[in-house]
């Protein structure tokens, strides 16, 4: 944890910025704190958000096993979690956070409100992803005698995987932002460094560094998320290598010729199939 560095923050504005050599010692531990905060939060968010999102879709009108009353209760609770701005949610949760973690500063104190806000967010994302699975696919499975649980796992959740992973990416990035907000009230991490050094001390070097670190962090998360979505979508997974092959085929015709041959040999086969 990097909080010891900032244990007694001097709030007088000095014009002496930290030198570039001093910055890594300040920012790297803070980055570690942010990663821990977001990582722990997202673990909780997924563990709670998936079942909640599944309940919202399954119990809702037109769901696999509609239970209107239960659905309304869950939906109302989730909506409350979604409607409060994070700063206010955090302040309102202080007594609860202290009860759960025994403290109201530091990483544990930040994780509680982040996990709550994140779970409410993610359960809506999961619900929406499940709802987007075409009803025709559900009908097909039901028509062949699948139970609601089988339809849920092998049709709904399975088809929604890329969409849920895309939502998870959005959610993770939102949590990075929340961690910065949590940082302003003493939770540590990149947000705390940005506020204490960059904002309160006008330390431009620290400010610039934290901006670069946050942008890079978000970019990495987005890239990982995009890769995960592609890897789970047969449609795009197949398309990418094909485009690459097409691009390289001019330069190295010998290496790409087998691909060209297979695709060319497919068409006469299709014709014979039709006559089958």
């Amino acid at each position: 944890m990097s909080t010891h560095v900032l244990a007694s923050p001097v709030l007088t504005a000095t014009s002496t910025d930290l030198t570039w050599a001093e910055i890594p010692a300040l920012v790297l531990p803070a980055l570690g704190d942010t990663l821990v905060m977001v990582g722990v939060t997202m673990a909780i968010v997924v563990a709670l958000g998936v079942p909640l999102g599944v309940s919202l879709d399954t119990l809702g009108p037109g769901g696999l096993t509609p239970r209107p009353v239960l659905h309304r209760v869950i939906s109302a609770v989730v909506s409350v979690g979604r409607s409060l701005p994070f700063l206010i949610l955090m302040a309102a949760l202080v007594p609860f956070t202290r009860f759960v973690t025994g403290t109201n500063i530091g990483i544990p104190a930040a994780v509680v409100p982040m996990a709550l806000a994140g779970t409410a967010f993610f359960s809506r994302i999961v619900e929406n992803s499940l709802r987007s699975v075409p009803p025709s696919l559900v009908r097909v499975a039901r028509a062949s005698g699948a139970s609601p649980l089988q339809v849920l796992t092998s049709v709904k959740l399975s088809e929604a995987v890329p969409s849920i992973l895309g939502g998870l990416t959005i959610n993770t990035i939102a949590m990075i932002e929340y961690s910065a907000i949590a940082g302003t009230i003493g939770a540590g991490g990149i947000g705390y460094v940005a506020v204490t050094y960059g904002y309160q001390r006008f330390d431009h070097n620290v400010m610039i560094t934290t901006i670069v670190v946050l942008v890079a962090l978000v970019a990495v998360v987005q890239a990982l998320g995009d890769a995960a979505v592609r890897a789970t979508t047969p449609h795009s997974r197949r398309r990418v290598p094909r485009q690459r092959r097409a691009g390289t085929s001019g330069a190295t015709p010998s290496s790409s010729s087998p691909t060209v041959q297979t695709s060319a040999s497919a068409s006469p086969k299709e014709l014979t199939d039709v006559h089958h």
């Binding site: 025709s136 696919l137 097909v140 092998s154 399975s158 088809e159 995987v161 789970t232 047969p234």
Partner: peptide, 8 residues
């Protein structure tokens, strides 16, 4: 609509 699962 053939109703095939796209990821299978």
């Amino acid at each position: 609509a053939d109703g095939l699962l796209t990821r299978r």
